[in-house]
Structures are given as structure tokens and as C-alpha cells.
């Protein structure tokens, strides 16, 4: 049954962190964090509630999204609302896995908001986020880029964790 076939994969096997890299960027550097600021991407955005405030983004180039979601959705992949819902849920699962790791390690609490899914230029999204940090007076933005695997296969979507600098320094204490 097609729906049965669609259920395999992404939503059944646990995620593992394959690579994790922290860098500090100026707000002006954020729009080009994945290369070309004008590149259209599918991005799922979450604010983080709890003890580690900041933001999470799951991002992938827009022309890879259908192939990425096809195993999950079958023919539903062409329904943009359902595709966005699935992408948002992938981000929720992957992002929560990340936050669960942090929260349990640091014995604290951190939860994502429900997803906001965008199909737009990565620069417009990252630039708007940069403005939030500038408004908070933060000229150095920590960006943690994480690549996940499932059974040794790398997820082609990238997870960005962008905490407020205060969150990061509080954690390190």
C-alpha cells in the first residue's frame, strides 16, 4: 500500500549527529552563510523556548526538497501545504533531537516552537534573523551547523542552531 511504503525512513530511524561545527559570524555575514544569499531554499524556522533561547533552522536548497520528501509523501509531495507540513515536522524531529541532547547534557529545558516553513531566498531569511541580533546589540552571532545521519546516510538538510550569545556562555559555566 503506497502510504505504507511512504512510512519508511526518515520518521522511523533515530538520528545521529555526524558533524557539528561552531563558528562566530557578524550579522552582515549571516545572509551568505550557505554561499549565495539569493539561493532559494526551503527552510523551517523555530524559536527556542526555555533555558537556552535562540533559534533553529532546517535548510535545504529548494530543488532538492521534492526528492527529499518523496519517500515520505508519495504523490502528496506535490501538495505544497502537505510538503511544508512534512518538512516542518522533519525539522521538529531533528531540531528536538538536538535540543534534547543539549537539555539532558546540561540538565536544563529547551523546546522549539511549532515550525514556520518558508520557500525563499536564504539571504532574506538569514538577514531578517541577523536584524534581530543587531536589535539585541549582539555583533557576534554564534552559529552551530549540524549534519545528521540516519543509519550512516547523511541528511541533505542542514540544521543551524543560532543561540543568543548569553545562552551559550550560560551553558558553558
Amino acid at each position: 500500500m503506497q502510504a505504507g511504503e511512504a512510512l519508511s525512513g526518515l520518521f522511523e530511524r533515530k538520528f545521529k549527529i555526524a558533524e557539528i561545527a561552531l563558528s562566530h559570524r557578524t550579522p552582515a555575514e549571516l545572509p551568505e552563510i550557505l554561499g549565495d544569499a539569493a539561493e532559494p531554499v526551503c527552510a523551517s524556522f523555530y524559536q527556542i523556548r526555555g533555558e537556552i533561547p535562540g533559534f533553529l533552522l532546517l535548510i535545504m536548497p529548494i530543488d532538492e526538497v521534492n526528492a527529499f520528501l518523496k519517500p515520505l509523501l508519495g504523490d502528496h509531495v506535490t501538495e505544497e501545504a502537505m510538503a511544508d507540513s512534512a518538512f516542518g515536522e522533519v525539522g521538529n524531529v531533528v531540531g528536538s533531537a538536538f535540543l534534547n541532547y543539549l537539555a539532558d547534557y546540561y540538565r536544563t529545558y529547551a523546546a522549539p516552537t511549532p515550525p514556520q516553513v518558508f520557500r525563499d531566498m536564504v539571504g532574506a531569511l538569514m538577514g531578517s534573523l541577523a536584524a534581530v541580533f543587531v536589535a539585541e546589540g549582539q555583533e557576534q552571532v554564534p552559529v552551530v551547523r549540524t549534519v545528521f545521519t540516519q543509519e550512516s546516510e547523511k541528511l541533505s538538510a542542514l540544521l543551524l542552531w543560532i543561540p543568543y550569545a548569553l545562552s551559550l556562555s550560560e551553558l558553558r559555566k
Binding site: D36, A37, G123, G127, S128
Partner: peptide
């Protein structure tokens, strides 16, 4: 008399 193109890529809230 600007001779090169100028661009702002990805204006969101900016």
C-alpha cells in the same frame, strides 16, 4: 556616473 551594477541580495525585513 556609476559603471558597475549594485545589488542587495535577499532583503527580508531589511
Amino acid at each position: 556616473d556609476v559603471q558597475e551594477d549594485w545589488a542587495i541580495y535577499g532583503l527580508g525585513s531589511c
